[in-house]
Design a binder for these strands. Structure first.
Lengths: 212, 212
DNA sequence: GTCTATAAGAGGATAGAC
DNA sequence: GTCTATCCTCTTATAGAC
């Protein structure tokens, strides 16, 4: 994984090794054209590199694609790590919801999601890698929050409900807004991230909130 | 749109016109390989027809794809029309949820959704056509149900909450289970359609149910 | 490692006979 | 409408010089 970054030459761009230049170009081309329609020629010219150079670093088109996907998934879901501080359960759920929605609605994240979905039947490792760094971590975060709120007596959710509720909570974040983005339909008017997050938090609280 | 079905010949298969045979073959090939990787040769041989015959009925590859998509979307979402009878709000929401999840979890529906997502950036009409016959109708159904339950005094949801709640409700149906299917990751153990539907209905009831 | 040039083949679309 | 045969472009991947 750690590559020999002997990158002491030229500097028309912020000093990328050839390998990184290829990866960056691959990202652009694959996300724009999709896997099958993307050509190695397009990647080469976008990276200002010859095709042979690409093949010196990556075995074939598929390997390049998988390397790019792994690369970008890690980056796209980094934001999941941060945890906020909060006063009450509603605020905590609301803020996690907003944070998560902003993450998945980012244009690059949407484009990445699209190509992963498109190719996952033929490239199962791609779908799996995405699922493990994205949705799996997100569900862990939600479950942690539920547990923490329970311990602080800010929420009263039975442990056996948690897996189901974590899925439903994340599902609400990925609702119509995300669907529209991913099938390239203009966003609906009148519906905002904040409004949806507010609604989702309220539903959980109505069922499991503690009345003080 | 209405084609001349002079279909009085041969019968090794349940008597399809050439055009229908091509559409059926196109469905198989496009759903298996994705748009770009699918070849007209493959469609031709799967339909037991020459390539020239395909081009006699469809202008080009793209037109064939769009025709197939329109065709299948209509069929896949037909089930949305039926409306059930019910006694109480929880049962009504539960049954709509189960019905909807079964619809979108059907293998053909998942495969169709995948290719539509994959190509929608390049073929916007495809994404739009899908959205209009699927998600739009689904949201109408949910909103109708909310309204009906309100009128029967089985639910007490303010009209201004309905758009948000309809989206959240449908989002819960399209949660982790559907995501796994669409990125080709094996389904989780312990989570069932019934359990998720039960949870989703309960959340709505907890917030908007009428206490009798 | 990086380049230029090229091999080898697949795939969209059409010409022309029937 | 349907077929066979073919055109021509684009694409993956490599050979061989530096």
């Amino acid at each position: 994984m750690s590559r020999p970054k002997k990158n002491l030459c030229c500097g028309d761009k912020p000093a990328l090794s050839k390998q990184d230049a290829v990866l960056a170009a691959a990202q652009e081309v694959f996300l724009e054209a999709g896997y099958a329609a993307a050509s190695m020629d397009a990647v080469a010219s976008r990276a200002n590199v010859s095709k042979a150079t690409i093949y010196a670093h990556f075995d074939n088109k598929r390997a390049l694609f998988e390397a790019m996907i792994g690369n970008r998934c890690e980056a796209a879901f980094e934001g999941l790590q941060v945890s906020a501080c909060y006063e009450d359960a509603h605020q905590a759920l609301y803020e996690l919801a907003v944070h998560f929605m902003r993450l998945i609605m980012a244009p690059e994240a949407v484009a990445l999601h699209r190509v992963i979905i498109g190719e996952s039947p033929r490239l199962p490792e791609v779908g799996e890698a995405f699922y493990n760094v994205g949705p799996t971590r997100a569900r862990q975060r939600v479950t942690e929050l539920f547990t923490d709120l329970n311990q602080r007596k800010l929420l009263d959710m039975p442990v056996e409900d948690m897996p189901t509720m974590a899925d439903l909570f994340l599902g609400m974040m990925k609702g119509d807004m995300h669907l529209r983005a991913i099938v390239n339909v203009p966003p609906a008017e009148g519906l905002s991230i904040e409004r949806l997050a507010e609604g989702a938090a309220s539903l959980i609280i109505a069922r499991y909130g503690v009345t003080s």
